[in-house]
């Protein structure tokens, strides 16, 4: 008998595949899902992957991602693919892209940066200087953020 874990297909929803191993729960946090919503959610962690060695997968029934959520996922799982499922079939498959500039998603860690001043109409803006390991540089003050900083900020928890 095959001793393998099987996760059943979803009818309509989203499958996020090729998530860096161990980051599936961060992805759920970005999606704002706790399980209490009553949606069918499958989380698969640390399974073998040709591309990544090991990977995580998240399947969510009945949820379509917003653009901002995709940008955030790209920052913590730059190899992720997003599959949109309709009637058990993949109707669209998108590989996330880390944009060259990240605007308004993250807060600069420098309290003396213009983007952290109250009452100034300015959004944070980071240049992506490296994707793996993630390295972001504030366009205003030069402060660097790394992968852990991004995870902490995007998920509100420990990296």
């Amino acid at each position: 008998m095959e001793r393998e874990l099987r996760v059943s297909k979803i009818k309509d929803g989203t499958v996020i595949d090729h998530i860096d191993a161990g980051r599936a729960l961060h992805v759920l946090r970005i999606l704002g899902l706790t399980g209490a919503e009553g949606l069918t959610i499958a989380v698969v962690m640390n399974v073998p992957s040709q591309k990544l060695g090991k990977k995580d997968i998240v399947k969510v029934e009945g949820v379509a991602l917003e653009e901002e959520q995709v940008s955030k996922i790209a920052l913590i799982a730059p190899s992720a693919t997003i599959n949109i499922i309709k009637d058990y079939a993949v109707v669209e498959k998108v590989k996330v892209q880390v944009p060259a500039l990240i605007e308004g998603l993250l807060k600069c860690a420098n309290p003396n940066c213009i983007t952290n001043q109250p009452r100034e109409p300015v959004k944070s803006r980071f240049k992506v200087s490296s994707v793996r390991p993630l390295k972001l540089v504030c366009e205003y003050c030069g402060t660097e953020l790394n992968q852990d900083d991004a995870i902490r900020q995007l998920t509100g928890g420990a990296a």
Binding site: N110, N112, C113, I114, T115, Q117, E120, V122, C138, E139, Y140, C141, G142
Partner: peptide
């Protein structure tokens, strides 16, 4: 300005 990035802003 004392604030970093003020000139760019």
């Amino acid at each position: 300005h004392r604030v970093e990035g003020a000139a760019r802003f």
